[in-house]
Write a protein that binds this DNA or RNA. Structure first.
Lengths: 216, 216, 216, 216
DNA sequence: CATGAATGAGCATTCATTCAT
DNA sequence: AATGAATGAATGCTCATTCAT
């Protein structure tokens, strides 16, 4: 007796991530969490297209039907997984960014992001896949998440100007983007080639860009 | 007797990447080029998994069988397409880097890369997909290509020290990596959201990192 | 979670033949039986290679996917079909061989075999195809079945010595083999050219060899 | 400029086997012989359906097109190969059967057949496959060959009556058939499981049936 | 004579999705 | 709330066959 579900999944800003698009009202339940973990886990190997619903269900120890009972479709599940992961990532970065010095706040946030992506390679892998997807089956969720992350970084970068002299011939948006790119590449590289750098070193590397941004 | 893989497009390495399964010598022929173009074209829409062999063949104006006659498998074709695209990319960057001033050489090479990736979104899309794949069907090609690009950037960065004071507490390898990430993110962002920046601006942004690297 | 192979029809051996790839326990279900019947039916026309999974599914009244849900692959299905048919054949022969006189027991068993093969030409056709296959996709099932049938005949032949004088310059193994060959050739000939002999006559013919074996 | 070729291949009794159905008039040429050898060789592994035209051409060291230039179709090639092999087999048996004593003539002919089939497992494999094929693509060649072999054996068996007392309650046709089956099974068994018997022993085994036939 | 390139119908297989229980 | 069985459209791949050179 499952109710039909809307195709469009709106990313719920500020409100509980999963709730909005769940098949049935109510909070993310235990089965859904199990499926999220399993999916994140397995997604580190092959990206969403290469990962089958059966794989995920098996890893989560439930049947395929259960995935459909809980999410209605693979697409929806991926979508909500993305939201789930992004929420956690943002939460980590937010906590870490609680520093008075804006440079330190940014460094600390990037450090947290690097740690998170290292520990959740499946999320990183998934995000990359979705981030650069195009065509018919594009979901707006990715854009919304990207916007949230970007906004978060942008605000941290804006704060730099309150204490440092920053270059005014470079857009904050642009700087945020390449910082984003640097962090991602560092994380994915670790996943692929093993950690050749400590998270601290990675964060310092990413801050090089900021050092180029701060100054005349 | 049928050509499963042509040596032709083998990416410029000391040892041919796909030699093991190569069946015959000879140059990349017209059909293979047509297929490469078609594949690059289509790949900008949905990544390799979402792109079917039939689609590629149709766009190239040949039959599905022809793809298999020329490449033997989808995987092999993708692999060689990657090599083909990388060869062109590196060629562009090499030509552009012909400047006496090492900073300008680097900036110009990055500019060329940004242009190339903008004009070949399919290649960029494909590369991203392969770059972070793992598991059974991983092909070493991606690693080799990545290594070549990284080596190229690394050498340009090394040259900076001949004229500028550079930070010695950051590894050149690491700097190369985040430059790589920045360029990629800039390019993919353009593909996804339309060009909000000129290529020149994008190149300057990427150089911010270098500016952070150059100085005491 | 899906049943690729059922343990059910595993041919009566000490160790299940296909155990390695079995996914779940449980009895041979209705769908699998339907598929066996359909496959045996169709196989009489063209051997396993010429028979498509689609044909079998259609004749069984299920979808192609169902075949794969139940058996995992065409090869596995053929394998289990062989086991299924062999089990039935051996059962028939076993029942028929219940005679005190060893010669009569053997004759009766051969008669049963001839009847069975006549009524299941698909099984005979399949077996012939597999029996002499070689190369990469060889499955051990055929050997195991052959060994069982041979062992059964061998034992019946051994019993002859308890009542008759038999030639000791001919190996029981060899005699079993040519009896096997005679029965097969008789059956297949009927299938190809129509029944020119009654099963009784066929059985008597096969017993000629035994008559040559019994005597000084 | 290849002339079209008739689908129906008539088996040329008593006349050169290959000539009748060759695309162009004239004797079997070198290329055709090379292809026959290659096909016989490779056919021992997988039967005609599993053997591709490409496999045969490759083994013969010619191109696929050459097969079609020489035979017009795979079917025709197989057909002529069958004729070619049968002609050789019959020739061997004929030479071997030149004995005054009919029993010895038969034994010797069977011995020759066993040797031939052992040395040409591809022919045996091919024949078995064709012998029990059914359906639309049945070629009459197999029947004609079978008839020739059977006639040959039948005549040898008929001669037995000139010197031995034979059973009159068993048809010569039937006896020929099971001798045929015995020889085949012995040969194929050797191919599959290695030679556990010398050809002499195999021939003696097959003669058991004759011993059952000779006597009151 | 021979062949390399191309073809396309046909086939085994995968997998997201449905649904009765 | 969960699931096992079934589905069928989609897809990668094979291979006999054609044909221009």
């Amino acid at each position: 007796m499952a109710a039909q579900q809307a195709e469009t999944v709106v990313y719920a800003h500020q409100t509980p991530v999963v709730e909005a698009s769940t098949r049935r009202p109510g909070r993310t339940n235990k089965t859904q969490l199990k499926l999220f973990e399993a999916a994140m886990d397995i997604m580190s190997e092959g990206g969403p297209t290469a990962t089958t619903v059966e794989d995920i269900a098996e890893r989560a120890g439930v049947s395929k039907g259960t995935v459909y009972y809980n999410f209605g479709s693979k697409k929806t599940m991926i979508d909500q997984l993305l939201q789930y992961g992004a929420k956690l990532l943002l939460a980590e970065m937010t906590v870490a960014s609680d520093h008075e010095d804006p440079r330190e706040a940014l460094r600390s946030a990037l450090y947290a992001a690097i740690i998170y992506l290292r520990e959740h390679p499946g999320f990183a892998r998934l995000w990359v896949s979705e981030l650069w997807r195009a065509g018919a089956d594009w979901s707006p969720t990715t854009d919304l998440i990207r916007a949230d992350i970007m906004r978060f970084i942008r605000e941290l970068i804006s704060r730099l100007a309150t204490r440092y002299a920053v270059r005014t011939d470079r857009s904050i948006e642009g700087v945020s983007l390449i910082i984003f790119g640097a962090v991602f590449m560092l994380s994915m590289d670790e996943t692929r080639h093993g950690a050749e750098r400590t998270p601290e070193e990675s964060a310092e590397l990413a801050m090089l860009t900021i050092d180029g941004y701060i100054q005349a």
